[in-house]
Amino acid sequence: RTRTSFTAEQLYRLEMEFQRCQYVVGRERTELARQLNLSETQVKVWFQNRRTKQKK
């Protein structure tokens, strides 16, 4: 599997969503992935990694 390189715009949007809600599921995840031109899996994993980073 190749590592995803997020654009600055994608990271900004993901961070904004994370500040709003640390868990994104269902339709929200589908819509966010579509808007950012990413897969739902990429969005899901980004949120998982971001929550892990916050715990440290």
Rank of each mutant, 00 (worst) to 15 (best):
R1V: 10
R1T: 04
R1M: 14
T4N: 13
T4G: 07
S5K: 02
S5P: 10
S5V: 08
S5H: 08
F6G: 04
F6V: 10
T7H: 05
T7S: 09
A8H: 01
A8N: 13
A8W: 05
E9P: 02
E9A: 07
E9D: 10
E9Y: 05
Q10A: 08
Q10R: 02
Q10K: 03
Q10L: 01
L11G: 07
Y12G: 13
R13Q: 15
R13W: 08
L14W: 02
L14V: 03
L14G: 01
L14S: 00
E15N: 03
M16Q: 13
E17K: 03
E17F: 12
F18A: 02
F18N: 02
Q19C: 08
Q19P: 02
Q19T: 11
C21R: 08
C21Q: 05
C21P: 07
Q22E: 13
Y23S: 13
Y23F: 11
V24A: 10
V24Q: 03
G26H: 05
R27G: 12
E28Q: 05
E28Y: 02
E28G: 05
T30R: 04
T30W: 10
T30N: 10
E31S: 05
E31F: 01
E31A: 03
E31C: 02
L32V: 03
L32M: 06
A33N: 01
A33G: 05
R34T: 10
R34Y: 02
R34I: 06
Q35F: 06
Q35D: 12
Q35K: 14
N37K: 10
N37F: 08
L38H: 01
L38P: 00
S39F: 04
S39P: 13
E40R: 03
E40S: 07
E40T: 06
E40H: 00
T41W: 10
T41L: 13
T41Q: 15
T41P: 09
Q42D: 13
V43C: 04
K44I: 05
K44D: 14
V45N: 07
W46V: 03
W46K: 00
W46R: 01
F47L: 05
F47H: 02
F47I: 02
F47S: 01
Q48W: 03
Q48V: 10
Q48K: 14
R50A: 09
R50M: 12
R50T: 05
R51I: 13
R51E: 06
R51N: 10
T52H: 07
T52L: 09
T52A: 10
T52K: 14
K53H: 08
Q54P: 13
Q54T: 06
Q54F: 07
K55W: 10
